[in-house]
Computed example of a mutant assay.
Amino acid sequence: MAGVMQPAQRPIYALGLRLLAMVAISVMLLLVKLTGEHGIWLPETLFWRQLLPGLALSGWLAARGEVGRLKTDRPLIHARRALIGGLGMFLTLGVVQILPLAEATVLGFTAPIFAVLLAVVLLGEKIGAWRWTAVLLGLAGIVIIAGPDRAHLPLIGLATGIGAAFMVALISIQLRDLGRTEKPVSIVFWFSAFCTPPMALFMLWTGLPHHDLAGWAMLCGIGATGLAAQLLMTAALRYGTVASVIVMDYSQFGWATLWGWLVFAHVPPAQTWIGAPAIIAAGLIIAWREHVRGSGAGPRAPSA
């Protein structure tokens, strides 16, 4: 838009912001795993994960007199996105309560692979040799990590992790459509607004009296780190492109491995260390090809 100053590109600063976002996400997933061991039901954790950032975001907009930014002409599309996104969040946070943090995290990196396959099925995109190679490489990584031994990676956990990645990929297709007409802040707000009330119903069964100070601290920490991650990722994309900062996303595997070792005394087996680089390489190839395809092709819909 004419007359609007675009923020100057600061690639190193953007990389730092994206790295901090991955730290925040890894801490959030650590806290989710700890709440499960603390006896807090996952639906209740999801409720506070959505409610606290939603309240913070709406309060911030109200203080700035910018509540009008939340106006939308597509409430049904937001509701559909919330339905799919809520299921995706349930699987994404649920898998860390089933699997070790490192394995749960690396399975999440398969989302770009499913995004490519969904683009073929739902959008009719033509996929070239590079992206097909990345898909096959990523699938090989899953097979290696799964391995013949179910002791460290039970089938239910593997299915949940793959299901979570598939839902994230499906959500990315939805966000591509919403991004044509909606502001990012509106997308985030309406996701919380539609997801929180159904999740609140679970509070009738779980209740609140069983929480101690540690439980409340973990729930507040999940909301705070989730919101921090969203803000940091948004800020990173103000000062750098997706292609320039996405490499930092894979640092989350290192943080998950570190927290798993420090808190749960878990060290990933050899097959995880072999399969994880294959999945990460597949994601980087897909990101690179998306960047090449998008260069000089005009504005593209934002993603989250």
Rank of each mutant, 00 (worst) to 15 (best):
M218P: 05
G147A: 04
Q230S: 04
G85R: 09
I12C: 09
M22D: 03
A287G: 14
I222R: 06
S303T: 15
L76R: 11
A276E: 07
P184S: 05
R131W: 00
P154T: 07
R176V: 02
A119Q: 10
P302H: 07
S251V: 14
W261Y: 13
P184H: 03
S58R: 12
L231H: 09
D212I: 05
L99S: 04
A214V: 09
A301Y: 07
E182H: 08
I246R: 10
A102P: 07
L46E: 01
A228K: 08
G215I: 01
A301S: 15
G163T: 02
L93A: 00
P299W: 11
A111M: 14
E182D: 13
G283C: 01
G88N: 06
L70E: 09
L208P: 07
G240M: 00
R49P: 11
F264S: 10
G254C: 13
L213T: 11
A56I: 04
I171S: 05
P100V: 00
W130T: 12
R10I: 06
W205G: 12
A229S: 15
L231K: 07
P209D: 11
A8C: 07
I40V: 15
A276N: 03
L201Y: 05
M89L: 02
R238P: 10
A140L: 11
I156N: 12
D212A: 08
R18M: 15
P198M: 02
G108H: 08
G223I: 13
M89V: 02
P277T: 02
F90L: 00
L70K: 12
I144P: 09
D212R: 01
G254Y: 09
R176W: 03
W273D: 08
T225D: 02
S186T: 15
L175Q: 12
M22K: 05
L57G: 00
P148Y: 06
A236E: 10
G141R: 03
I142E: 00
L20W: 03
E290A: 01
G85Y: 09
F109V: 01
A235T: 09
L51H: 04
A115L: 13
M89H: 05
K126M: 05
V245H: 01
G128D: 08
L136T: 10
L137E: 08
A217H: 04
T181R: 11
S172V: 10
P184C: 07
A265S: 15
A146D: 03
R64T: 10
G207Q: 05
I77H: 15
G59V: 13
R150D: 10
M167R: 05
Q230I: 11
G36E: 06
C220I: 15
P154W: 06
P197I: 14
L83Y: 08
P148S: 15
W60S: 14
R150I: 11
A140D: 10
L55T: 01
L46F: 05
A115G: 14
L101D: 08
A276I: 06
L57F: 13
W288D: 11
L118P: 10
Q271L: 13
L87V: 14
C195G: 01
V95N: 02
G141E: 11
E44M: 14
T234E: 01
T92K: 00
V292C: 09
A164N: 02
A104V: 08
V96A: 06
T110C: 05
F47Y: 06
V95F: 06
T196H: 03
Y239P: 12
F202K: 06
